[in-house]
């Protein structure tokens, strides 16, 4: 390989990494929102994405509809499921020790993973003919349509989310609860209701991530673990309280993973988690924390 080839290969990985990073931003957004507002440690986050991806796939296959559209159908249902999970599982452990929260959500993740394994079996499932499956070349680089589309959609959804948090009454209430729960309560914010809606909105973001994933790839019961870890790495890198920070952090992770795969595809995740170690050691509040 000449140096120029190497440069082109690296450039291609950076482009793919940015797209991947924008996708990771939407993957992590639900976790960041729920962790930020409710201070609940959700280890089942990735598994919720995994099960939603199966849900999207099932709808796509039965209705013969592209995942990008069947995703839209899943969102209201996931919103309701989110209300249910919050009422049944999360509320009882709110404010309990971290270990109990981790235990319950790890349990939920295990349950979802193995329901998926039992029902859908271990073979990967994918939608055979997604709307965006081709690619085009841009100079020496190749742009894959599905990755581009998922990056654009997640960016749009995240901008909408940040508008929502900045402009609407509910969004302001959510931010107030993030900053100081006790004062928010004293100012007349119904914290219980904010929690309920936060989790439900988090589920909607999970549904978007799941739908975008089905446009790009295939789902297996074990998909959740890596999504959970990547989301937590993004939250650790970003710190809480800033969506822009989350996007930039997710892009850093995506590019790091992409460049890591240049060394060998089997160590790409190791690169991401090494970054995670150093962040926890040297910058435990993250790069962009508001507090």
């Amino acid at each position: 390989m000449t140096p120029l080839d190497l440069l082109v290969a690296a450039g291609q990985q950076v482009i793919d990494g940015v797209f991947l990073g924008l996708f990771y931003a939407i993957v992590a957004s639900g976790l960041a929102l729920i962790f930020g507002v409710m201070d609940i440690i959700n280890f089942a986050h990735g598994d919720l994405i995994m099960i939603s991806a199966y849900f999207t796939w099932l709808l796509s296959m039965t209705l013969n509809l592209d995942p990008l559209f069947s995703m839209l159908l899943t969102l209201p249902i996931l919103f309701l499921i989110g209300l249910g999970i919050q009422k049944g599982l999360i509320n009882p452990v709110l404010g309990k020790e971290p270990l109990i929260q981790i235990a319950v959500t790890v349990g939920l993740g295990f349950v979802l993973q193995n329901i998926a394994l039992g029902y859908f079996k271990a073979e990967p499932k994918g939608y055979p003919a997604p709307l965006f499956s081709g690619g085009f070349s841009l100079g020496p680089f190749v742009i894959y349509e599905s990755k581009l589309v998922s990056a654009v959609v997640s960016l749009v959804v995240l901008i909408l989310l940040s508008r929502f948090l900045a402009k609407t009454k509910l969004g302001l209430a959510m931010r107030a609860v993030t900053d100081d729960r006790a004062s928010a309560m004293l100012m007349g914010i119904n914290v219980g209701r904010v929690y309920l809606l936060t989790f439900a909105i988090g589920m909607v973001l999970i549904g978007v991530a799941a739908g975008l994933w089905m446009e790009m790839g295939q789902v297996t019961p074990y998909l959740g673990t890596s999504f959970s870890l990547v989301s937590w790495v993004a939250v650790a890198l970003a710190g809480l309280g800033s969506i822009q920070g989350l996007i930039i952090s997710a892009i850093i992770i995506g590019v790091a993973q992409s460049l890591g795969s240049l060394i060998s595809p089997s160590i790409q995740m190791a690169v991401v988690y090494l970054i995670f170690f150093f962040i926890l050691w040297f910058k435990p509040r993250g790069l962009f924390a508001r507090r």
Partner: peptide, 25 residues
């Protein structure tokens, strides 16, 4: 550096993945 609770759990969980990747490599 006082890494604890959820971050300790995540760090150790990712240690498994790091070693898994390195040994596969």
């Amino acid at each position: 550096f006082g890494v604890k609770e959820v971050w300790y759990a995540l760090m150790t969980a990712s240690l498994v993945v790091i070693l898994n990747n390195l040994f596969r490599y």
